[in-house]
Amino acid sequence: MLSKNQARIFFLGGTAVSFAIFLGLSWHSLSSEVPKQTNSQNITPQVINGKKLWEANNCMGCHTILGEGAYYAPELTKVINRRGDEFVKAVLMSKTPWQPRGRKMVAYGFSESEAADLVEFFRWIGETDLNGFPAPPKYKSTINLEN
């Protein structure tokens, strides 16, 4: 039967091995693969500013991006693809709450340049290689998806 000492070795050994593998893979991902998949050379000051605005207003509190966030409002990773620049800008600059089907978005009333920065942020993130996410629907879409 297993002794307490063996159980301790199982815990400490298992943890050490797992953690070492995890660190190794993380290092490999972040140093070589992530920059490639995310086209990190395309991260312009505009994109960075867009990300700052994204965080400062907690957009993730309603929307998802890369599938992460809240589930109250649409996923935005491919929003530029789906809606185009002008539509997105109009929503961002609106002075009254945008409310498709009655569900309200906060009226941020962004300036032209802030809205442009956010659009650049969405454009950059929309080009990221996400291993197939979001999967194309299996049936014909009711909105103007490109594919």
Partner: peptide, 24 residues
């Protein structure tokens, strides 16, 4: 010890399930 061992062995590398579709 056995339980927390199982936790770490599965949980640390299990972080990978958050990395499926975020550009990793």
């Amino acid at each position: 010890y056995v339980i927390v061992g199982l936790t770490f062995i599965s949980g640390i590398l299990g972080t990978g399930h958050h990395y499926y579709f975020i550009g990793a």
